[in-house]
Amino acid sequence: MAVASTKPYIGAPRDTVANFNGKQLVYVCWEHHLLFASSLMFCVEPEMTLGDFLHHTVRPLLEADPDSAALDFTRAEWQKAKIAWTPDFNASLAANGIRHKELLRFHTPGLNSLGA
């Protein structure tokens, strides 16, 4: 049952990629770094390289965490769509298969200053 209704009922999603003027949403989670209360949301161009995205867009927001100085994205363990993933930092978000509203998770074993 897609919805309980009195007649056929089709919903329209409000956050499709067409609504973002050529950009897309990407979510990023630094695992076990809960100073940040939630996964972070970014609205970026899919042509941007993953490396630029991480270094210029994501990293500045992570500086509040004492582990950020030691953070090396290339040595992190990555997950996309809930499965282990090897990113290509020189390729674009699109070429990396990062879809609109994709959640990227990275784990940095050994970095754990705030204990959680």
């Binding site: 897609a2 009922y9 329209a12 950009k23 949301m41």
Partner: peptide, 24 residues
């Protein structure tokens, strides 16, 4: 998943902020 056609229509404040007219 019980009623996906209902919830896909949610107007979520954060994604809305990046859509027109606010555009971030």
């Amino acid at each position: 998943h019980d009623e996906p056609e209902k919830y896909i229509q949610a107007v979520l404040p954060m994604p809305q902020l990046f859509q027109p007219p606010l555009g971030g």
